[in-house]
Write a protein that binds this DNA or RNA. Structure first.
Lengths: 143, 143
DNA sequence: GTTAGTGCAAAGCCTTTGCATGAGG
DNA sequence: CCTCATGCAAAGGCTTTGCACTAAC
């Protein structure tokens, strides 16, 4: 999982009409390195250079999500988690209801199923996104 | 969509070791009649006979979810929604990001996909549940 | 009579809003 | 320079906790 250079992040931000500030670059870098979705509070705790206000963080995350550079995920942990949205890295999650451990699932019927659902739907004009998460028990929590 | 008689709800509750109180019976009845998932606040607002404290409602909902009589759903509305969990009525949702309107999706690859994900997983022992929701734009919001 | 359920008050926690200051392009 | 980004303070909203009282069985 290699991390794109900071310049590439700058370009990504500017392409979407967002300013490439140090905080947003570090945020993208953090998200890109992360091995699992993180909450705003976790991101703040992991912040390296300088500090970031939680409000700024929430607003930056909102901007990234709106720009499709990040995704929101609900893992039933009582808060929103965020993860980077790389093209070609579509995936979902297995979540342990015991300890919260997370594993990625790469198989996904979402697109086809979405088209089917849309075709059968009376009310909807288009689908942009879907959420799919599995909840179960990990081997450590069974023992 | 017929509603089972209250006696049947009593039996359901007792089978799971829960007491069949008037509030829980009315709660099950409300959930069974609902055409879409509802938040705790919505349920309280729809309450007919007498009144129910929000705390009691949250605890009753927790009990129903634990007893698999209800399900939690995240439709990205900033709160948890609840719906009845009837056997043979497994479904998911289309959610309009414009106006919030909801439509049910009956097609679901969850079981097979879950088994596949579990087979490929290194860490997980079992899967009990999954969440699958589609987000898009309804015809009214396109116009 | 025991135990589970309920209400009230209060707190907890994540998240958002408003406003003034500061930095990007 | 003008606009967007940031920080601080405060509030908002959903949900949980503690404790005393009530009702189911």
């Amino acid at each position: 999982m290699k991390t794109p250079p900071a310049d590439s992040f700058s370009a990504l931000l500017r392409e979407r009409g967002l300013r490439a500030t140090p905080r947003r670059l570090q945020l993208l870098s953090l998200l890109a390195r992360a091995e699992r979705p993180m909450s705003a509070h976790e991101i703040k705790a992991k912040w390296k250079r300088g500090r970031i206000d939680l409000v700024t963080l929430y607003r930056a995350l909102d901007a990234l999500v709106a720009a499709t550079l990040a995704r929101r995920v609900d893992l039933r942990h009582g808060h929103i988690d965020y993860e980077i949205n790389r093209s070609g890295n579509h995936h979902h999650h297995l979540v342990c209801t015991g300890c919260g451990v997370i594993e990625e699932v790469t198989a996904c019927p979402g697109k086809n199923l979405g088209e089917l659902a849309l075709a059968r739907s009376a009310k909807f004009a288009s689908l942009e996104e879907h959420a799919l998460e599995f909840f179960g028990t990990c081997k450590a929590c069974v023992a």
